[in-house]
Simulated scan of single mutants.
Amino acid sequence: MSSSNSNLPEPELLKSLLEPLLDDFLYWFERSRSLLEGNTLNFLSTEAQADLLQRVRQAQQEVETARMMLKVTDGQVGLDTAVLMPWHRLVTECWQVSMRFRSQNP
Rank of each mutant, 00 (worst) to 15 (best):
L17Q: 12
E64G: 10
T46D: 13
G75D: 03
Q104H: 11
D24I: 05
W87R: 12
R67V: 06
G78D: 14
L14Q: 12
E93V: 12
Y27P: 06
S3D: 08
T73D: 01
H88E: 09
V56A: 08
S6A: 13
A66D: 02
S3E: 12
Q58E: 14
N42Y: 08
P20F: 00
E62H: 08
R67K: 14
E47D: 14
P86E: 03
D74C: 13
L18A: 03
E30G: 10
T92G: 15
R55V: 05
L8R: 08
R33C: 08
S34R: 15
L52W: 00
R33L: 10
L18P: 07
Q54W: 01
N42S: 15
L79K: 02
S2W: 00
D51N: 14
N5Q: 09
Q76G: 15
L36F: 00
Q76K: 15
G75I: 10
D80F: 04
E64N: 06
Q76F: 08
L41F: 04
L14T: 06
N5E: 10
E93Y: 09
R100W: 04
S34E: 15
A59R: 02
L70M: 06
E37G: 14
A50P: 03
L52V: 02
R31T: 03
S32H: 07
D24N: 12
L13C: 07
R102M: 13
T46C: 08
Q104I: 03
A59L: 05
V77M: 13
L53F: 03
S4H: 07
P11M: 10
S32R: 05
T73S: 15
G38F: 09
L22H: 02
S3W: 01
D74H: 13
F25D: 01
